[in-house]
Computed example of a mutant assay.
Amino acid sequence: MSDDSSTAAMVAKATVKANLPAPAARLAAAPEAVAVAEAASVGVVEPLVSLADFMNVLHQQDRRYELVAAFAKAQQRAARWFATAAEYQACFAAFVSQAVR
């Protein structure tokens, strides 16, 4: 009786494993992996920077502390914790040029 249940369990486990995508396919499906793969195909890969690191650099470059703090809060609300420095710089430029509500 235990042979039947263990055989059924092994068959069920093999069926589940057979239906799973390959590990490379699962990784490639992640948005970050796709962005890195696209950048790698061009030949230039810019590293991701944390929001805290970018804000430290931005505080040293731009002395408008209230504006920089508001930008940091907007990025946190948007859940943008990691991006390239160029993406953060573009977001900051767009943030600065927004109309005041």
Score class of each variant (00 low, 15 high):
Q76P: 04
C91L: 10
V100T: 10
P31K: 12
Q98P: 00
Q98T: 12
S6K: 14
A85Y: 02
V44Y: 00
R26E: 14
V11I: 15
V44T: 14
L58W: 08
E46H: 03
A14V: 04
Q89V: 02
A29V: 02
A37S: 09
L48W: 10
K73N: 12
R77Q: 03
A12K: 07
A72Y: 11
E66M: 13
A18C: 03
A28M: 15
A86W: 01
L48P: 03
Y65L: 06
Q75M: 15
V11Y: 02
P47L: 09
E46N: 06
Q76I: 10
S5R: 11
V96T: 10
R26W: 07
A85H: 00
R77E: 09
V57Q: 15
A12L: 03
A8F: 13
V96M: 04
R77M: 02
L27M: 14
F71A: 08
A78Q: 12
L58F: 06
S5L: 14
L20I: 01
V42T: 15
E38L: 04
L27S: 11
A90S: 08
E66G: 11
A72S: 10
S2L: 09
D62P: 01
L67C: 07
T7H: 08
F95S: 04
V34L: 05
L67W: 09
Q89A: 04
A8T: 08
L20M: 14
Y65N: 11
A39N: 02
K17N: 05
T15G: 00
R63D: 15
A72W: 06
A99T: 06
F82L: 05
V44N: 07
V68W: 06
T84F: 04
Q75R: 14
R26F: 02
N56F: 08
A86M: 04
L51V: 03
S50I: 01
L48H: 07
E87A: 01
F71E: 13
K13G: 02
G43W: 10
E66R: 13
M55F: 05
A99M: 02
A35M: 04
A18G: 02
L27H: 11
E38G: 00
D53P: 03
A99D: 09
S97A: 11
Y65H: 11
E66K: 13
S97M: 05
A9I: 01
S41I: 02
A24K: 09
H59K: 12
L48F: 13
K73E: 15
N19R: 12
A90D: 06
V42W: 03
A85F: 07
S97Y: 01
D53K: 15
L48I: 01
S5E: 14
L51R: 15
A39E: 08
V36E: 09
C91V: 00
N56Y: 13
A30P: 00
S50W: 11
A52I: 08
V49D: 12
A28N: 10
